Simulated scan of single mutants.
Amino acid sequence: MFLRKPLLLAACLLVLGSPVWASPAHTFDFGQPAPAAKATRSVEVVMGDMSFTPKAIEITAGETVRFVLVNKGQLLHEFNLGDAAMHARHQQEMLKMQHSGMLTPTGMKDMDHGAAGMDHGMMKHDDPNSVLVEPGKTAELIWTFTKTTQLEFACNIPGHYQAGMVGKLTVGP
């Protein structure tokens, strides 16, 4: 009888520590990240204070594109590939990051999530379909588009999408 609690505790630790329970890797039905060497063309996207130039991009299914992201604005911006529903979900995550103090108008703060009692999985900006670009900086996102679809590229920092920081991405045959 006295071994019951230690055995129960050991079983719980095994289950909680098991990789089977780890969250799955991000997958996207419209494509996946790719190495720079696979890029067949580059598309420059300029980020203004609440705008993208160009506002629309056309891609061919099967194409690997290097997006060169130039932030000429005064604020931190994001370039995120997805559909409207995906952007809505990501905006909620970004809002939580802003409320925690991790997301500032011009950058991201490194925080000790454990000490703050925060969930590590909820407080990261590490989605492969997204990149943050600080004011005056340039970044890249390389993506292979696998099927024809209608997507958006957007900045999901709170208020930016609503202010018009969204563009149309058409993946054609």
Rank of each mutant, 00 (worst) to 15 (best):
N80W: 02
N80P: 00
L81T: 04
G82V: 04
G82M: 00
D83M: 03
D83A: 06
A84H: 13
A84Y: 11
A84Q: 10
A84S: 12
A85L: 04
A85F: 02
M86R: 12
H87P: 05
H87Q: 08
H87N: 12
A88D: 13
A88M: 15
R89T: 12
R89K: 15
Q91T: 02
Q91W: 01
Q91I: 00
Q91V: 01
Q92H: 09
E93K: 09
E93W: 11
M94Q: 04
M94D: 00
M94T: 01
M94R: 09
L95R: 12
L95Y: 05
L95F: 09
K96Y: 12
K96R: 15
M97G: 08
M97H: 13
Q98F: 08
S100T: 06
S100I: 07
S100C: 00
G101H: 02
G101S: 08
M102N: 11
M102V: 13
T104F: 04
P105G: 01
P105Q: 01
P105I: 03
P105V: 03
P105F: 00
T106V: 14
T106E: 15
G107L: 10
K109R: 15
K109L: 15
D112A: 12
D112Y: 02
D112N: 14
D112T: 01
D112K: 10
D112E: 14
D112W: 02
H113Y: 05
H113L: 15
G114M: 07
G114R: 15
G114F: 11
G114H: 08
G114K: 13
A115P: 01
A115S: 13
G117D: 07
M118S: 00
D119P: 02
H120L: 09
H120G: 01
G121P: 02
M123Q: 10
M123Y: 14
K124A: 10
K124Q: 11
D126M: 05
D126I: 06
D127T: 04
D127Y: 09
D127W: 13
D127R: 14
P128G: 13
P128K: 11
N129K: 13
S130E: 11
S130N: 15
V131H: 03
L132H: 08
V133D: 05
E134Q: 12
P135Y: 06
G136N: 03
K137R: 14
L141T: 00
I142P: 03
I142M: 11
I142N: 09
I142K: 06
I142Q: 09
W143L: 13
W143E: 11
W143K: 11
W143T: 07
T144E: 14
T144L: 15
F145Q: 06
F145K: 11
T146G: 07
T146A: 11
T146Y: 06
K147W: 04
K147Q: 12
T148V: 10
T148H: 12
T148Y: 04
T149D: 14
T149A: 14
Q150W: 07
L151E: 02
L151P: 09
E152I: 03
F153V: 06
F153W: 10
F153S: 00
F153L: 07
F153D: 07
C155A: 05
C155K: 05
C155I: 01
N156T: 15
I157M: 10
I157Q: 04
P158F: 03
P158K: 02
P158R: 01
G159R: 05
Y161H: 13
Q162S: 04
Q162Y: 00
Q162N: 08
Q162I: 05
Q162D: 08
A163C: 08
A163M: 13
G164H: 10
G164C: 15
G164D: 08
G164R: 07
M165F: 01
V166S: 07
